[in-house]
Design a binder for these strands. Structure first.
Lengths: 206, 206
DNA sequence: ATACAAACATACATGAATGATTGTAAATAT
DNA sequence: ATATTTACAATCATTCATGTATGTTTGTAT
């Protein structure tokens, strides 16, 4: 038996990795803590030591995801940018590429987007996801607002409508891809989709 | 007590309506048959009389949804159409309008899109949803293929890429709208989104 | 009027998942 | 060297949903 702090941290990570797999395979509420424990090579006791309950395992998984693009976007929001729509376009396409190659993040994304039981009275768990989505929306909104003030929005678009439309596309893209078992080339579809929508939001320099 | 055939059919409908509500509020696997029964004003016995188990309640709910646009689209696929992309555009926008006004269909849609536990080894339940989605995709594909053979696809688009991109948008739109608690005007966002994507798929007549 | 079947309600048996408790070997502090 | 935590494993009691079996009332056919 091993009990050093590093080992403890290691089993914590193993539990999280196992949880990602089991959640991904069986859905969140279809996964018992015992299944996760077995997959991680421990017992439920270990899980209950590190986490309060299943919900806390989920939120721990969620907090593991951190896209490098976020810092880029945050920087642009703070310091301004001369072509916000292009920034969105580039950053989004990069995110698609990253996600297409990182299995662990795919699983977590899938669990968050698809496997989350959704309830009208939002449970602690679902609330986290809603919050995260709202934060992403706000960032989009700020960037598009920046573009608007530069007179770069095509007629007919409002800041909110454009932000929502783009958000729907991206979430829909990942959701469909993961739900379908990665049955189509996300990168191709994603790039075209992003360019289409951004293209029609952008004021054409005719 | 009432036992006539019409009354039986009525309680069957009441059970389904209750199921839609309870599933919508608590998620599918968070809803016990007892909760549904109470909401419908019956006991589980009644539910087990009409349905084999919870999965069958779900599929019964699913089979209740039948959009009038489907017949229009089917007709076009069979008999041909001189502007398939416009047909997709029109039909999709109409679907958005219908959905925006029908609470029952919104709930069912929400359950199907969001509340479905997703699993790698698809359970009987999830399989139905996947199948339904695949059917919608095939129809899209056929229509876009028709447009392609008329030389109406913009350069860079393939039939599959275009069909996937559009499907992602629509599913993403409804998913986001329902998940967010209908916090934005679907009709506005939907119309702009549909026109944007179809517009960039369509060969421009410059 | 009688018999049977339809349409439920009620009661129970089962199994699974949870959470709490307890036990314990090793690590760390003193 | 000893005491005390740490980091788990193992066990147990409880809850809870499910499925089934059985009871009961009413419609309906003869």
């Amino acid at each position: 038996m091993r009990r050093t702090k590093e080992d403890a941290a290691k089993t914590r990570e193993e539990v999280l990795a196992a949880a990602a797999e089991v959640f991904f395979e069986n859905g969140v509420s279809g996964s018992s803590l015992d299944k996760i424990a077995r997959r991680a090579g421990v017992t439920r006791g270990a899980i209950y030591w590190h986490f309060k309950d299943k919900a806390e395992v989920l939120t721990a998984l969620h907090s593991e995801i951190r896209l490098p693009q976020e810092e880029l976007v945050d920087h642009a929001i703070e310091h301004g940018h001369d072509d916000p729509l292009s920034l969105i376009e580039q950053a989004s396409i990069e995110v698609v590429h990253i996600l297409a190659n990182d299995e662990q993040q795919q699983r977590i994304f899938a669990i968050m987007i698809l496997g989350c039981e959704f309830t009208e009275d939002p449970s602690e768990t679902a609330q986290r996801i809603i919050t995260a989505n709202a934060e992403m929306y706000e960032k989009l909104q700020k960037l598009i607002d920046m573009a608007d003030r530069q007179g770069k929005l095509a007629p007919g678009w409002t800041v909110d409508t454009a932000a929502r439309a783009f958000q729907c596309c991206m979430n829909g893209l990942f959701a469909e891809w993961l739900r379908s078992g990665k049955s189509f080339p996300v990168i191709d579809v994603g790039e075209r989709l992003v360019r289409s929508v951004i293209g029609s939001i952008r004021q054409r320099a005719d």
